[in-house]
């Protein structure tokens, strides 16, 4: 019984690869575009950070210019209360007791409740 043999000249090649057109650009173009976008983004972010620093400096200096005026007002108020306390103590007890062993100004922890409601 004769055996089947390959046809003369061999079999036709099997097509294992699809023959589709490549879509879009070369991959390197996409890589470069990504890097480009990222570089621009970082550049803008850096600019934003610098501007933010400048805005923070502006805000800080606005406050620095105001601090002496605010502090002066607060200190006057503290001295007023302190002297009023001293006068009240003198009137009630007849003495001026030194509470702290120091000359420094100490913000009082407790305040006397005034007799009449202020407002």
């Amino acid at each position: 019984m004769p055996q089947d043999m390959p046809p003369t000249g061999g079999y036709a090649p099997v097509q294992y690869r699809r023959n589709l057109p490549a879509r879009g650009f070369r991959p390197a173009v996409y890589v470069l575009a990504t890097f480009g976008i990222m570089t621009y983004g970082f550049y803008r972010a850096g600019q934003g950070i610098r501007e933010h620093n400048e805005l923070a400096r502006e805000k800080m200096w606005a406050r620095i210019h105001l601090i002496p005026a605010l502090q002066a007002e607060e200190d006057r108020d503290q001295v007023r209360r302190y002297l009023a306390d001293r006068a009240r103590e003198k009137e009630l007890l007849g003495t001026e007791t030194k509470v702290y062993n120091s000359d420094r100004f100490v913000r009082p922890t407790f305040a006397v409740t005034p007799e009449h409601v202020t407002k």
Binding site: R76, V79, R80, R81, L83, A84, D85, A87, A111, V112, T113, P114, V117, T118, K119
Partner: peptide, 14 residues
């Protein structure tokens, strides 16, 4: 309930 502030003014020599 109420505002309680010591309103004694500064002495006159200031």
């Amino acid at each position: 309930s109420q505002v309680l502030i010591d309103t004694t003014p500064l002495p006159d020599d200031i």
